[in-house]
Nucleic acid binder design. Sequence first.
DNA 1: ATATTATTTTAGACAAGCCTAAAATAATAT
DNA 2: ATATTATTTTAGGCTTGTCTAAAATAATAT
Lengths: 217, 217
Amino acid sequence: MISLAEENYLKSIYHLSQAGSQSVLTNELAEAMNTKAASVTDMIKKLSTKEFISYEKYYGVNLTTKGKVVALSVIRKHRLWETFLVEKLGFSWDEVHEVAEQLEHIQSKRLIEKLDEYLGFPKVDPHGDPIPDTNGKIKALQQVMLASLKPGAASMIVAVKDSDSQLLKYLDKIGARPGKTIKVIEREEYDGSMEVSINNQRFFLSKEVSENILVNA
Amino acid sequence: MISLAEENYLKSIYHLSQAGSQSVLTNELAEAMNTKAASVTDMIKKLSTKEFISYEKYYGVNLTTKGKVVALSVIRKHRLWETFLVEKLGFSWDEVHEVAEQLEHIQSKRLIEKLDEYLGFPKVDPHGDPIPDTNGKIKALQQVMLASLKPGAASMIVAVKDSDSQLLKYLDKIGARPGKTIKVIEREEYDGSMEVSINNQRFFLSKEVSENILVNA
DNA sequence: ATATTATTTTAGACAAGCCTAAAATAATAT
DNA sequence: ATATTATTTTAGGCTTGTCTAAAATAATAT
Ligand SMILES: [Mn+2]
Ligand SMILES: [Mn+2]
Ligand SMILES: [Mn+2]
Ligand SMILES: [Mn+2]
């Protein structure tokens, strides 16, 4: 049996290892999990014993195949539930993440397969993130941060950061949704801010914002 | 903040106090919660401190108004989720209880109100049990056990026990669903079994079964 | 009224998951 | 190469919710 805490650690390790390409370090994980490094060390020992991760002292952790399966299953559930909340219950995209953080831990294979079917087997969630299939296969996205585009470049928004409600409300207001095309007009080197156009309207985006909008690579 | 364990205790106390009419005793609760009496004593001290129950040493516990609110909120969630699983996801009525035991602990006022609306504000769950409204008001049912009917009596099934999957499959097979009329043909005094008719078909029911079918009083 | 039995509470312990403070190790700067 | 700094681990402790065994209390039988 796997606990809620263990599931959350595995999910977090998965996300962090997608971001950076090396082993996930204790401090990174502590930061992401909102705990202390000592607590992380405790937990990674347990996860290592259970063979969900491989762990080299002082050099961080990596998911095993077994651990990846768990992580992707939790992510699948999270994204299916977010889709349900938006598509069926009429939540807005900035209200779903917190609830999905709870729902992702419900243990029932049958439930999640039925839900998937009920939703018409969606491929992406309301924030544009891909939904892993039953076997944990996930579509590797060809995506980069908007922040990395050069002035003059235009690209389609594929996903946005899902966990910041404030940000999502703002993105909604300026029409920055997955599927929309965004064009970089100017980019200020010293603070990384940029002027962009969406739907023929112009906006100034801080570096912060432009790093949380993902566009087609 | 109230924990999952506390919620389950309060729910259990509510159900037990509906059954018997006196205070809920430590041993009853231990039996229902599948724990030991010592654990129950620990927990009822906590619940008493938090004023969810009133507790007199050696004489059992009673829910306070505050405790009843929590219990009914959990029961509301449980029954709405069961309804969702059957009505929307196509579960059968014998598959939903276990999953609802998990879903009933999801914390989100908005979620449960949206779900209620999505389901069309149902009044009863798939097993015929009444769903408390937002304010915790629940329709007091005029119901008795089928076991208490005398030969010749006929009455409408209003609810069945929801937590025994085997029983529910059997009830489904013989057509014993809420809304159906059931007539007692004969009753064997020595073991409490009875012969009944449903949909003009005859069946022999054990005492066990006849105590888990509730009919109009 | 007293002895026996059943129920409940207390005492003490344990696992999970977290914490702070101190020690160990690795990375970096001189 | 050595000293300083940053990171990670260890040590020890806390809370929640559980357990077993023993003590206390209540209920029942004689
Ligand atoms: Mn999310
Ligand atoms: Mn999302
Ligand atoms: Mn149920
Ligand atoms: Mn039910």
